[in-house]
Computed example of a mutant assay.
Amino acid sequence: MADDIEAKVAAARAELADTLDAIEDKLNVPKRVNELTERAKASYERNPLPWIIGAVGAAIAVAGVVAWAILSDDD
């Protein structure tokens, strides 16, 4: 009976340790950033065209906002 309880306690501790490890892994921001960076690099290497189009679109949007801010007649 005592051995059964000790086995259950040991199993619960092991499960708790696994859960805490999984939580720690999910909350590890530098690791997640590295994973995202690697995925983005791989995506760009497979097909750079969408990345280039997105960058050009963002540059046009920024230029448009800057031009609007400079040329708008707020006075």
Rank of each mutant, 00 (worst) to 15 (best):
M1K: 15
M1S: 15
A2K: 15
D4M: 10
D4H: 14
I5G: 10
K8N: 02
V9W: 09
V9R: 09
A12N: 10
L16V: 09
L16P: 00
A17G: 06
A17P: 00
A17F: 04
D18G: 13
L20G: 02
L20D: 11
D21V: 03
D21R: 04
A22Y: 13
A22L: 06
A22F: 12
A22C: 06
E24W: 11
K26D: 15
K26P: 05
N28V: 00
N28D: 13
V29D: 02
P30R: 06
K31W: 03
R32P: 00
R32E: 14
V33P: 00
N34S: 13
L36E: 02
T37Q: 11
E38L: 09
E38A: 09
R39K: 09
A40R: 15
A40V: 12
K41L: 10
K41C: 01
A42E: 12
Y44F: 03
E45Y: 14
E45N: 12
R46L: 15
R46N: 08
L49C: 13
L49V: 14
P50S: 10
W51Y: 14
I52M: 11
I52R: 12
I52D: 02
I53D: 09
I53Q: 15
G54I: 07
A55E: 02
A55N: 08
V56D: 13
V56R: 12
G57F: 04
A58N: 11
A59I: 08
A61T: 00
V62D: 09
A63Y: 05
V65G: 01
A67Q: 05
A67N: 03
A67P: 00
W68D: 07
A69S: 10
A69C: 15
A69Y: 14
I70F: 13
I70P: 00
I70L: 05
I70D: 03
L71I: 03
L71F: 13
L71T: 11
S72E: 08
S72F: 08
S72L: 06
D74H: 14
